[in-house]
């Protein structure tokens, strides 16, 4: 399927009249979790992402190979998104094997901009998640705002931010 896309350079967006896919596109991030039923409310109820689908992974799923997962493990796969970014996030559940502790420092993070910053923070705390102290955000282009990190139940790092001030 071909479609038009928006080309962005140095913070300015402009339409590109090219009826083809861009050469490369970030599709999604995918976190490993130990309990999908426990993890999903973090991403849906706390963050506000939409659950697109959940499926049992096939026994020959490619995830076994690339994640180097013991074939004895049972796997489920959930895809989440927003109305503007369908399928931007995924969770892969592993059952039947012991998940090792998440190594420190954390190796990866997902970063999301959210308008309901305080609501997400309150819901994360109410869910019993590890929530870091709030930070002051200053972007490279001078915008100022708030940022907050927290861990899902499996130690996966999630960072939210809200821009409050734009430079003149």
């Amino acid at each position: 399927m071909l479609y038009k896309y928006i080309y962005i350079t140095k913070g300015n967006a402009m339409t590109q009249s090219i009826d083809e896919k861009p050469p490369v596109r970030f599709q999604r991030a995918n976190y490993i979790v130990s309990d999908l039923d426990r993890a999903l409310p973090v991403y849906t109820d706390v963050l506000g992402l939409d659950l697109v689908f959940v499926k049992e992974s096939a026994e020959d799923s490619y995830s076994y190979e690339v994640f180097q997962i013991d074939r004895a493990a049972k796997m489920r796969f959930a895809v989440l998104g927003t109305p503007s970014q369908p399928n931007c996030m995924a969770l892969t559940e592993l059952k039947g094997i012991e998940l090792k502790e998440t190594p420190l420092p954390s190796r990866s993070a997902i970063v999301l901009e959210c308008t309901d910053f305080d609501g997400v923070m309150q819901r994360a705390k109410a869910a019993g998640l590890t929530v870091f102290e709030e930070g002051n955000l200053v972007t490279k282009d001078g915008r100022k705002g708030r940022e907050l990190g927290f861990l899902d139940h499996d130690g996966n790092l999630i960072v939210i931010y809200l821009i409050l001030e734009h430079p003149e």
């Binding site: 928006i6 963050l47 109305p83 996030m89 954390s106 990866s108 993070a109 970063v111 999301l112 901009e113």
Partner: peptide, 23 residues
């Protein structure tokens, strides 16, 4: 036009995946 073609167009969703970050 600007609001439609820049990331702020996502604001109506309430949440926007900005990026992943890897060590």
């Amino acid at each position: 036009v600007v609001s439609f073609f820049t990331p702020t167009a996502y604001a109506d969703d309430g949440i926007r995946f900005q990026r992943s970050n890897h060590l």
